[in-house]
Design a protein around this nucleic acid. Structure first.
Lengths: 203, 203
DNA sequence: TCAGACATGTAAGTCGTTACATGATTCA
DNA sequence: TGAATCATGTAACGACTTACATGTCTGA
């Protein structure tokens, strides 16, 4: 495990695509990968400065005429190496702490209806989430078949000035869809669990 | 959301079963629920003291003759209320941060084989985990049918002096099995995802 | 003209982990 | 007798979150 924090690598990875500002990074995370990743400014800006100090990125004021102050970060060759190293190094399993499961376990000596009620609202929550993912999936699939191209995902395909080739866009969309697929499968598993529990818990 | 930290409630919940020492709590978490919860001493002992200060638990030196110093914590009625409140209050979805998914996404513009290699080792990791869960499942199921009763799970059925009735043990084992089932379904979903990705990524 | 998006940052706090420190008891 | 387990704790750090603070630009 590298001693560095994850935000460090997340930023580096995004900068490896193209130069961006802190604000751009935040937006990109929100729009594209919020179902498995998040960043917040309180962490983002200090980490960007750290990256510059460590020589993994450079900071330049973007002084396009008529635009407000804006700093664009660009990855350095050292940063690229650092990123490549991280991508290829083994990923440690995340520390698990599932509050829902904890409740289920701890409440097992309480009346069954309490547990049942919790499971039901968990299930409802998951079903809602599933619906949202499915609709995102539909949008992405349509984009892949080039029926239409929703502007919400634009920033993921070219944040800044660089434009992706048709082939690159296609690939990018495919990865986005596969990421989403992970979320969908995970949710379906949880819903399945709820079903099973609701069935067998009362006896 | 309650403003309190989760360790606070985890401890309270375990104490709601029976009085225990910090060491007992740690053991119980490790043996029984480590696949969805963890605690460490650095957090455990200070939180126990906090619980006492807040009037949710009492601390008593257990001076059984010939035994070394040991503090046993017991939940108070206020603690019980606090626990019951938490169990019944809505559970907020955990903040997601999946490093594996992040790598998959960020590396999408790199050569496919890098991503493929990562997915494969992720899959191997999950398969191993699955095997472990399945063997735990077998043990618990055997215990449920009273074919045998492994001593590893004893602490979960009576940590301390209190003994559960036959019926209570049965119920407890069932909950343990269902918790494990959640882990198994989640892992199977991840393995399924790996299979799908390995199939479609190369084109 | 004013709401909403653009844009950058700091301070304080929470939560949790790791490493360290210490010593008693049990059992092979 | 010595390794494993029992048992309690602290200090320092690391990672991330929340709330606050400030101001600009754009388009309806």
């Amino acid at each position: 495990m590298s001693g560095r924090k994850k935000t460090h690598f997340a930023i580096l990875g995004l900068l490896s695509w193209q130069p961006m500002s802190g604000y751009d990074i935040k937006k990109m995370v929100e729009i594209g990968i919020s179902h498995f990743w998040n960043e917040n400014y309180g962490n983002l800006y200090p980490t960007l400065d750290q990256l510059v100090q460590d020589g993994f990125a450079t900071k330049t004021e973007d002084a396009s005429s008529g635009k407000r102050k804006r700093y664009v970060y660009e990855i350095t060759p050292e940063g690229q190496n650092e990123f490549m190293r991280w991508v290829q190094e083994p990923t440690s399993a995340p520390v698990v702490r599932n509050e829902m499961q904890l409740k289920f376990f701890l409440a097992s000596r309480l009346p069954t209806r309490i547990n049942l009620k919790n499971i039901q609202s968990y299930q409802a929550q998951q079903l809602q989430q599933l619906a949202e993912y499915r609709s995102s999936e539909t949008i992405l699939r349509a984009a892949l078949e080039e029926k239409e191209f929703p502007k919400e995902i634009e920033p993921l395909l070219n944040a800044g000035h660089v434009r992706l080739s048709r082939k690159q866009k296609h690939r990018q969309l495919k990865v986005l869809l596969l990421s989403l697929r992970h979320g969908i499968l995970a949710i379906e598993a949880r819903i399945q669990w709820c079903k099973e529990v609701i069935e067998v818990l009362p006896d």
